[in-house]
């Protein structure tokens, strides 16, 4: 396997379900990513954004009944790239996040790599 574009990056994974969280974390490991988390709830996600040096973040939208958008806002403020991983259609997202990169569940490792890399390039590139 060639070295992925994500190799060596520190990416926060926010996902409130255990099994999918473990699986996506494993996929990211295989892509050479240093996974921060996974974390299942809003508080730990906000803490991670504050405490960790992040190259990017993958955000589940619904965290135990709470929307992840405060985390997204904080990442925007820090100019940290992120993408949503969700089963929701885009129109459920607030207007300002509608054009944001989005992974539709379920996804495989290839989509994860492609969309994550594109999302990270988007901010880093311009």
């Amino acid at each position: 396997m060639s070295i992925s574009e994500l190799d060596g990056l520190r990416i926060l994974l926010v996902e409130d379900e255990y099994l999918p969280a473990v699986e996506v974390a494993e996929m990211l490991h295989l892509l050479g990513v240093e996974v921060i988390g996974p974390v299942p709830d809003l508080d730990s996600a906000l803490n991670a954004v504050s405490d960790e040096l992040l190259d990017g973040a993958i955000l589940d939208v619904n965290l135990r009944g709470e929307a992840v958008f405060p985390v997204a806002e904080r990442l925007l403020a820090r100019n940290t790239p992120f993408l949503f991983a969700t089963g929701y259609d885009e129109w459920v997202l607030p207007e300002k996040f509608r054009d944001h990169p989005r992974l539709t569940k379920p996804f495989d490792r290839l989509s994860l790599e492609r969309v994550t890399a594109a999302a990270l390039r988007r901010v880093n590139g311009g």
Partner: peptide, 10 residues
């Protein structure tokens, strides 16, 4: 839809 997709992910 969301639940179905989450279930598929699970």
């Amino acid at each position: 839809q969301h639940r179905v997709k989450n279930n598929l992910a699970l």
